[in-house]
Design a protein around this nucleic acid. Structure first.
Length: 267
DNA sequence: TTAAGTGTTGCTCT
DNA sequence: AAGAGCAACACTTA
């Protein structure tokens, strides 16, 4: 689930609920998500610190603390951030729970334990060392930078969009949605796009990601809050294209399940 | 009941 | 050297 829009929603949730608050207690319930940091050290650093700000790059969430440390969160396939009211219990699959001095708190959960919890010096060093490309919604990203980010002309456009070292934030779901709305087949080669198609892909990418964030996709379960003419709610076998009614086609691209409309999306 | 599938990533092998 | 295949994991669906 957590791609750029989802992580941005988590960030806003954290920003609204945790910013300026002091962490009074730290509960680490699953050490397996910790990346190169011991539970003891993480607890020690988090406890009594205050959340100064939050930031996001692609699918990574950064939490800046007033002691100079930076908490880095990645949600894998099933992670979430939940806010907890006073006296709330610990949600199922919680890996890390932070309690604030007013009794409220947040829980970082991970059902499949594929995420990561780490500490870093600063965000830009982390982004560099993890070889992440520019954030897909970086306001300074222009069409030239976008084209450069797509990289090798021979790679399938869906693979290029999902490659975090080229462009950070887009995963399997949103790559399908973006390509559907841009009218491009998933296996179109990057080098075969003309300028008009590249520009349309770029504009569509930004519009789709922004709209998904603004609609708060996660707040209503999965897809209920999305426009009915998006592919996302029809991304399954036996579904029909919301534009033309053609049967949605399922395939595999770069080892990932892929859904598209063979009629609306050109090759 | 068992097996296959899954919104991620990173490693190995070609 | 880019791409396929698989492992990590735990749960859901067929």
């Amino acid at each position: 689930m957590p791609e750029l829009p989802d992580v941005e929603i988590f960030r806003r949730r954290l920003e609204a609920h945790a910013r300026g608050r002091a962490i009074s207690a730290v509960h680490i319930l699953d050490k397996r998500l910790l990346d190169a940091v011991s539970a003891a050290r993480l607890s020690c650093i988090l406890e009594d610190s205050r959340v100064v700000s939050t930031a996001r790059h692609g699918k990574h969430l950064f939490v800046e603390l007033d002691n100079g440390s930076l908490l880095v969160l990645h949600f894998g396939m099933t992670g979430e951030i939940l806010t907890l009211g006073r006296g709330a219990g610990t949600p199922r699959y919680t890996a890390l729970r932070l309690a604030f001095n007013d009794g409220s708190g947040v829980a970082i959960t991970s059902r499949r334990r594929l995420g990561h919890i780490a500490l870093a010096k600063d965000a830009s060093a982390f982004i560099r060392s993890h070889e992440l490309g520019p954030d897909a919604l970086d306001p300074t990203l222009d069409i030239q930078a976008f084209q450069a980010a797509l990289g090798s002309p021979r790679s399938a456009i869906k693979s290029a969009l999902m490659d975090q070292s080229k462009l950070a934030g887009i995963g399997n779901i949103y790559s399908d949605e973006i390509l559907f709305q841009a009218g491009l087949g998933p296996t179109v080669r990057v080098g075969d796009l003309n300028y008009e198609q590249r520009n349309r892909l770029f504009q569509t990418m930004r519009r789709v990601l922004k709209e998904a964030v603004e609609r708060g996709v996660l707040s209503e379960g999965t897809t209920a809050a999305l426009p009915g003419d998006w592919l996302l709610g029809h991304r399954a076998k036996g579904e029909r294209c919301p534009h033309c009614g053609t049967a949605v086609q399922a395939s595999k691209v770069a080892g990932r399940s892929c859904y598209f409309c063979p009629s609306c999306q050109v090759d």
